[in-house]
Design a protein around this nucleic acid. Structure first.
Lengths: 125, 125
DNA sequence: CTAAAACCTGACGTTGACGTCAGAGGCAAG
DNA sequence: CTTGCCTCTGACGTCAACGTCAGGTTTTAG
């Protein structure tokens, strides 16, 4: 025993990752280009991912949807899968959190404004 | 009496509107170009607005912040200041409302994910 | 009167996360 | 073998709400 971590992980190609995470193949390549995702390569040059890459891609997508830039996500990922950060990273995390919270508040206010209009126009047939 | 609505509204120029609403002069011109805002013109061609234009610009900004396009805002504005809509407009209003609500949910989920990371990294000095 | 500040009309530049197209391989099935 | 699907690397296109620069007129402060 003590075989050097045979790790018989089933490696999947980019199409399967994309479908699994609900994004385009182009997007997955883009994430790699932005340094958010690493892939092994087959002898012929095709990207090979572990299945948990799907989870990672979903996370990346969620952060994009929250308005984080590739840069911020790149800074965030080490915190995510290592659980260890320095002061600068913690400050960034809190700043992003505050930004998202502010955005939620803005959206909520916009919802209220829209609801006013909807209510008025619904009671004015 | 019965003078044809003298309306001695104090008209203001674009700079004042922009400052009042907290946007750039360029933005106000852009809103006009998108058909969201109408302005009288002075003899020399400068735009003149009633003071309530500030309120309108703020509303436009809020809708932009909520992710509505110029097109949608243009469709929405008549509902806002006339309080009367047709079926298509009501459907649009509800659709936008649903979109924004979905976005709020996404942001909230992202906030939760970020909080997980923050909590973990804060308890791991 | 004059200089600064504000305004005008174009029109090109920016940003970010991809979409899309071109051209060239790779890979299992029949 | 070849058909068809997947993948590769560039590299240009997109979209939307403005930013910004150029070159000229207008209004205001002193």
């Amino acid at each position: 025993m003590t075989v050097t971590q045979a790790a018989d992980e089933r490696l999947v190609r980019i199409g399967e990752v994309a479908r699994g995470a609900g994004v385009s193949v182009r997007a997955v390549r883009y994430y790699e280009q932005q340094g958010l995702l690493v892939a092994e390569r087959s002898p012929s040059g095709q990207r090979l991912y572990r299945q948990d890459a799907v989870t990672l891609v979903r996370f990346i997508q969620q952060m994009y949807a929250a308005g984080l830039t590739s840069q911020r996500i790149a800074e965030l990922l080490p915190c995510w899968d290592s659980g260890h950060t320095d002061d600068r990273q913690r400050a960034m995390l809190r700043a992003e959190r505050a930004r998202i919270q502010a955005k939620v508040d803005d959206l909520q206010a916009a919802l209220d404004r829209l609801d006013e209009v909807i209510e008025i126009t619904d009671t004015h047939p």
